[in-house]
């Protein structure tokens, strides 16, 4: 130790110290640069950001709440219920005379919340289980893969309906049931990654340091496959929004007077024949913007993170 300290105060080392340290970009810094080069992805981030802000602060601008019925318009919705700045219904009203703007804000909030929370949590759950299956292998792996196969055979709409019949229709129940249904998301891909990484020699080297399994996974395996998980999340979030919309469209999703994009699109579609096209158009536009920007963000992430793309 003392010898080393002497060595470090020697003139050679001090000159060496003065030499410029080469600082390299980490994988993540590199990926960030690549992502920002993709203009479409960056634009999509702004669009998504706009949607999120809209769903949180959109109410500030609205002159009605999402439950209030504008009695003055009832009965003449087709003629006077369209979008208008004069009566404060920016997006018009729905067939019951409720302010569509307020309802789209509310619907965006539900859909994005469900999409992000359910999408992210289910990937975390699936990845954890996948990592456990791969790392321990043997019987654990067999058991988890068996459960996975069985889950694939359960029709999820029926499961959804049955679950809601038991536990009621609320936002939190919806998120829970979607996580449970999607526990397999990311499982296979993470399992494959971990199986590959755990045989790499740097994991052996970590074992030689006497690290616990948990530390090895957290410090050496997870950072090397985080990119897979992130890409997978970017796929699962729009999928979760889609699933929520689908079940709401079918009428088993969110409960009135709460609403979501799917529920709004469903209502709009059913009244379209009466000529109230705005009731379909506004929620549909928001839904499409969300899906398209999530797609491009996912695409950009894939290009930025996948080492094969380099």
């Amino acid at each position: 130790m003392r010898k080393l300290k002497q060595l470090l105060t020697s003139p050679e080392t001090t000159t060496a110290l003065a030499e410029e340290m080469v600082k390299s970009r980490s994988f993540w810094a590199d990926a960030r640069i690549r992502f920002f080069k993709n203009k479409m992805a960056v634009f999509s981030v702004f669009m998504l950001g706009f949607l999120v802000l809209f769903s949180i602060f959109g109410n500030v601008l609205s002159q009605w709440t999402y439950e209030e019925i504008d009695w003055s318009l009832l009965g003449k919705i087709k003629e006077e219920g369209g979008p208008s700045l004069a009566n404060g219904h920016y997006f018009g009203v729905d067939e019951l005379g409720r302010d569509l703007y307020a309802r789209v804000v509310q619907g965006s909030r539900t859909s994005l919340l469900v999409g992000f929370v359910a999408g992210i949590l289910s990937v975390i759950l699936g990845s954890t289980i996948g990592a456990v299956a791969a790392f321990y292998g043997g019987r654990t792996d067999q058991f988890i893969m068996g459960a996975y196969t069985i889950t694939l055979a359960i029709p999820y709409i029926i499961f959804f309906v049955v679950w809601q019949a038991f536990f009621g229709r609320s936002l939190s129940q919806m998120i829970i049931v979607m996580i449970i249904m999607n526990w397999t998301s990311g499982l296979l891909i993470v399992r494959g990654q971990v199986r590959m990484l755990k045989n790499r020699e740097f994991v052996d080297a970590a074992r030689m340091l006497g690290m616990s399994d948990f530390t090895i996974i957290a410090r050496h395996i997870l950072p090397n496959m985080l990119w897979v998980i992130i890409i997978y999340m970017s796929l699962t979030i729009p999928e979760a929004i889609m699933t929520e919309s689908l079940v709401s469209f079918l009428g088993v999703g969110i409960q009135e007077p709460n609403t979501s994009w799917g529920a709004l699109i469903s209502e709009g579609a059913s009244t379209m024949t009466f000529g109230t096209t705005w009731q379909l158009a506004y929620p549909a536009i928001f839904f499409v913007i969300a899906q398209v920007s999530l797609f491009y963000i996912g695409d950009g992430l894939r290009d930025a993170l996948d080492p094969k793309e380099r």
Binding site: S24, S26, E201, F202, D204, A205, M208, G210, P223
Partner: peptide, 21 residues
């Protein structure tokens, strides 16, 4: 044992964690 016995590996690049400096 491992405190006093260490190991080096065949594939020099795969034996280093690519995410660590």
């Amino acid at each position: 044992l491992r405190r006093r016995m260490q190991m080096i590996f065949q594939d020099p690049i795969a034996s280093l964690n690519p995410r660590m400096t």
